[in-house]
Design a protein around this nucleic acid. Structure first.
Length: 475
RNA sequence: GGCGACGUAGCCAAGUGGCAAGGCAGAGGUCUGCAAAACCUCCAUCCCGAGUUCGAUUCUCGGCGUCGCCUCCA
């Protein structure tokens, strides 16, 4: 099967083919670093990670750009209150973003451009838009003239008549020709200078509007036409619509060929998680509550398809954690296993089927939940075969390959801490001696002692194994 | 008001015009000094009604319910 992706532009799944053979140019809307990212934000970012991983699995070279919005109204407000510059204000949150992404094992993008470092590119683009009358200056601000771009609304399938009807009156503080026109540039106020949020431009001192940064930075790093542009579904309108208008008006080329949008994560009440609405959960919150970041990763990318809404719940996180544990347990067991003399041909056939099915599921608009389901089904068969000692050398290799396929997307199997703690090994040996002498009281004491330190022991025919307990498992 | 999505077991969730994946939780069992892991067994007439069809959870229409976008937002 070839890779098929659901393109918001057409509302259909389409065969994917990049403009340049073998090379995908992808732009994804990153965080506004005015605060910690909440888990809903992270869902979108891990969705981007899934896309890029699958593209790479599919043999493409990927140039992935994810922006950091380090200037916007919220940042201005916060910096002003904190009496600092926007640059200083944003620092810890930008750092926290990269820490969160690392903890969640998101692959790094090729470029993380920041808005404030690309003002000249934005100014150029705005100048060109003004020159060609796609934009106009009003009272020091610069607006995009929506009437100049007839295709406005195509992505979000909103017609312009409906838009105008829906717009609230609150935006009337600006001198706009039309209520739907959006800001490309906002003129400076005296306070903006003090917090480092003001730049010179031919059309007057000011700061960029939000939308223009993506148009300018994607052009700078990826050119006029992107193969894939992705973002959370709430960005579809107006942000992505505005990006299309700006870029296509300025470049006279198709801006993005495929648009991917990931659905929202809702909070415990079932409503969209959002910063402005109050209750939101960060990765830090979940870790403090005893959740493994990789369980969070598993939950966010594999619990439900990216285009369906999911609700954050302790039960779902627990289920994801169990899935991670089962995968690891199986991987370790496989590694320990000495292959049987001959291979189980039925098992080999099934493993091959599952590998193909997994691949097909991912090719079908990144249906990771379905793929993972197939794999867990097969894990049961494989565990039974291991129980029965029926796993031969080829079986073992094939199962390893299956795990490797799955972990290319999930990336949760690899253990965090390489190397065994020697002390644990020593205590295990001590306990084995006690068990041989049938001193079970002492054996249990050692096991309990290790458990209290976060290490679980498991006795089996092949000897004693140990693993780290998740914080939530300790008691 | 306009546009749109969704409603599958106690929970999460995939999916198909032809007897409904997977995970979590639960019950019973095998194994084990005990436990854990693993395995086995059990656990769904797919929101309601009508229609199309030999046959619908899957298509159409109508209800009811939940949610999203139309405004900053991943």
């Amino acid at each position: 099967m070839t890779l098929r992706l659901h393109n918001t532009l057409t509302g259909r799944k389409e065969d994917f083919e990049p403009l340049e053979a073998g090379h995908v140019r992808m732009y994804t809307c990153g965080p506004t670093v005015w605060n910690y990212a909440h888990v809903g934000n992270l869902r979108a970012f891990l969705f981007y990670d899934l896309v890029r991983r699958h593209l790479r699995v599919s043999g493409y070279r990927v140039t992935h750009v994810m922006n950091l919005t380090d200037i916007d109204d919220r940042i201005l407000d916060q910096a002003m209150h904190a009496r600092t510059t926007i640059e200083e204000y944003v620092k810890p949150y930008a750092q926290a973003f990269f820490e969160d992404m690392a903890a969640l094992r998101a692959e790094r993008a090729e470029h993380y451009p920041r808005a404030t470092e690309h003002i000249p590119e934005m100014v150029d683009m705005i100048s060109s838009l003004i020159e060609h009358e796609y934009a106009y200056i009003a009272d020091g601000d610069v607006y995009f003239r929506i009437d100049s771009f007839p295709r406005y609304g195509e992505l979000s399938h909103l017609d312009r008549a409906g838009l105008k009807a829906g717009v609230r009156v609150a935006t009337d503080k600006y001198e706009k020709e039309s209520v739907s026109d959006f800001a490309l540039w906002k003129r400076s106020h005296p306070e903006d200078e003090e917090i480092g949020a003001s730049w010179d431009a031919p059309f007057g001192k000011g700061r960029p509007g939000w939308h223009i940064e993506c148009s300018a930075m994607s052009k700078r790093y990826l050119g006029d036409t992107l193969d894939i542009h992705a973002g959370g579904i709430d960005l579809m309108f107006p942000h992505h619509e505005n990006e299309i208008a700006q870029s296509e008006a300025a470049n006279h080329k198709t801006f993005a060929r495929v648009w991917l949008h990931s659905e929202h994560l809702s909070d415990a009440t079932g409503e969209k998680m959002s910063k402005s609405a109050g209750g939101f959960t960060t990765l830090r919150d979940l870790v403090a509550a005893g959740h493994d970041p990789l369980a969070v990763r598993m939950f966010l990318i594999a619990n439900a398809h990216y285009r369906s809404r999911v609700r954050l719940s302790p039960e779902a996180l627990h289920a994801a954690a169990e899935q991670v544990r089962r995968l690891r347990e199986f991987a370790e067991r496989l590694d320990r296993t000495t292959p049987a003399g001959e291979d189980d041909h039925a098992l080999a056939r099934r493993t091959a089927e599952v590998r193909a099915g997994y691949r097909d599921a991912l090719d079908d608009d990144l249906n990771l939940p379905q793929g993972v389901g197939l794999v867990f089904d097969h894990l049961r068969e494989a565990n039974a075969a291991l129980d029965a000692g029926r796993v031969g050398p080829l079986n073992k290799d094939a199962l390893r390959a299956l795990l490797s396929d799955v972990d290319a997307h999930l990336d949760v199997i690899r253990a965090e801490e390489p190397g065994l703690a020697e002390e644990v090994e020593r205590l295990i040996a001590e306990r084995e001696t006690a068990r041989r002498e049938r001193d079970f009281a002492r054996a249990d004491r050692i096991r309990e002692d290790l458990k209290s330190r976060g290490i679980a022991l498991e006795d089996s025919k092949d000897g004693v194994r140990w693993r780290r307990l998740r914080p939530a498992e300790r008691s």
